[in-house]
Write a protein that binds this DNA or RNA. Structure first.
Length: 442
DNA sequence: TCACCTGACACATTTGAAAGGA
DNA sequence: ATCCTTTCAAATGTGTCAGGTG
């Protein structure tokens, strides 16, 4: 840690962001991610590598999206400006890596890609995609949880990592032409729009009569080539920076903790800054370690599509920066005390079987309340088979803040049902929702 | 009027089944 | 019968664009 300012310890787990150079290139301009109703992949996509895990211990790996602040933005004259308060947060969803749970050796043997993670603006999405608001800023947050299966996740120690350069603005259409150009240049699926490519449609459909019609068109892309000089990026968020100097401040922060961002906790709400971005830097924690609280209403999504695990060796982005990597190790272990939780439990540890101690209590974990899309009325009983290759884990989702219930672990209401369902295995719809935690994310 | 969203579109890559050969 | 490679069509992922919406 002393040797590497980019890393700090939490336990001994180190997480390294792959394609850092590409991420930084985007971040310098102001990364935008398209969100659509059917769901859109991220580009660059989240790809990390892990070290410091116990070879023989099982871990679950998750990603969720955290609001960067409490504002809504607008793109105005080549820069982002604050356009008011953020809209109420959509249902919080967490994307579970399809390999989960897997041994530490598995996670560490190669890069872990979240290529198939999709973002949507459809708050009624039934596919388990991560729901975001357009024109809002987010950053992905990675959680590594030592747990044999999802049922024990809530008792397990999890460690959280974020990378400042992965911050992005969710949009339904690209605002910054420089971002468009970067995407086209680096995303293989967009090769057809590259200047050297055939690019038939672009040229054929251009309407020279209306050059102003779309300021964000390829015409402007050419301009961006020249404007990619150092300094234009600072202006990308000029409005924001001008007001708050927030981004500039963040650039200096190599690794900060985000203490208030308890992934499953109600404190998430508090973590969303609604005050000035220039206020106290609440993102001072980039990694935390906590005991996961008991479930009540958290919901799990699972997709069989994840049986087709995204190729960790996807070429996307890798060609850009095989060298660029940024890593964080968790720093000071932080244990969130959970109401009614046995605080005498051992503190965070990479080796500790604390989540396995005693008979595993699945009560509350499996409150099947959600049927798959198109299968209304069907209750999915087969929550999770940790050793089944047929039913890889998919995504979980949680309710929005409005649905947050104060921590009240293991209420009898759902425990009976939960235990009952936990032993069912059978056909699973494409997507299912399952409650997992008593805390929502927000 | 304007900012934002949506769906169709062309082009690209990825995926997986089928065919063929060793 | 099995394995491997090649081929090819379908599925999927892109940004663009015109039009819709509030």
């Amino acid at each position: 840690m002393a040797a590497c300012p980019d890393a700090y310890l939490q336990g001994s787990i180190r997480m390294t962001l792959e394609d850092t150079d590409l991420w930084k290139t985007f971040n310098e301009i102001g990364t935008e991610m398209i969100i659509t109703k059917p769901g859109r992949r991220m580009f660059p996509h989240c790809k990390v590598s892990l070290s410091g895990l116990l070879q023989c211990a099982k871990y679950i790996f998750l990603v969720d999206m955290v609001p960067e602040d409490g504002f809504r933005y607008k793109w105005n004259k080549e820069k982002w400006e604050v356009a008011g308060k953020a809209e109420p947060q959509p249902p919080c969803r967490t994307y579970l890596h399809p390999d989960s749970p897997a041994l530490g050796s598995h996670w560490m043997k190669q890069s872990i890609s979240f290529l198939k993670l999709k973002l949507t603006n459809n708050t009624l999405d039934q596919h388990g995609h991560i729901i975001l608001h357009s024109m809002h800023r987010y950053h992905p947050r990675f959680h590594i949880v030592q747990a044999d299966d999802l049922f024990s996740v809530r008792w397990s120690v999890f460690q959280t990592f974020t990378f400042p350069e992965t911050t992005f603005t969710a949009v339904t259409a690209y605002q910054n032409t420089k971002i468009t150009k970067l995407k086209i240049d680096h995303n293989p699926f967009a090769k057809g729009f590259r200047d050297e490519g055939t690019n038939k449609k672009r040229h054929a459909n251009k309407n020279p009569a209306c050059p102003e019609k779309r300021a964000k068109t390829p015409d402007a892309l050419n301009d961006s080539k020249d404007s990619s000089s150092p300094g234009f990026c600072q202006s990308s968020y000029e409005g924001y920076e001008g007001e708050e100097g927030y981004l500039a401040k963040r650039k200096d922060v190599v690794a900060v903790k985000e203490e208030q961002y308890s992934p499953w906790g109600a404190e998430r709400q508090q973590g969303v800054r609604t005050d000035s971005p220039a206020g106290a830097d609440t993102r001072d924690i980039y990694s935390t370690e906590q005991l996961v609280p008991a479930p009540a209403s958290y919901q799990l999504y699972r997709a069989h599509e994840h049986a087709k695990s995204p190729s960790p060796s996807s070429s996307i982005g890798s060609s850009i920066s095989g060298s660029g990597r940024r890593s964080f190790e968790s720093r000071v272990p932080e244990i969130a005390s959970v109401p009614d939780h046995d605080l005498s439990k051992p503190g965070p540890s990479n080796c500790g079987p604390q989540h396995l101690a005693g008979p595993q209590d699945y009560s509350g974990v499996l409150n099947m309340t959600m049927a798959q899309a198109g299968k209304s009325g069907v209750i999915s009983h087969h929550i999770y088979s940790p050793y089944s290759t047929e039913q890889p884990l998919g995504q979980w989702s949680g309710p929005g803040s409005a649905q947050y219930a104060p921590p009240h672990p293991l209420t009898g209401d759902y425990s009976t049902q939960a235990v009952h369902h936990s032993y069912h295995h059978g056909n699973v719809g494409e997507w299912s929702q399952y409650p997992l935690f008593s805390y929502s994310c927000w």
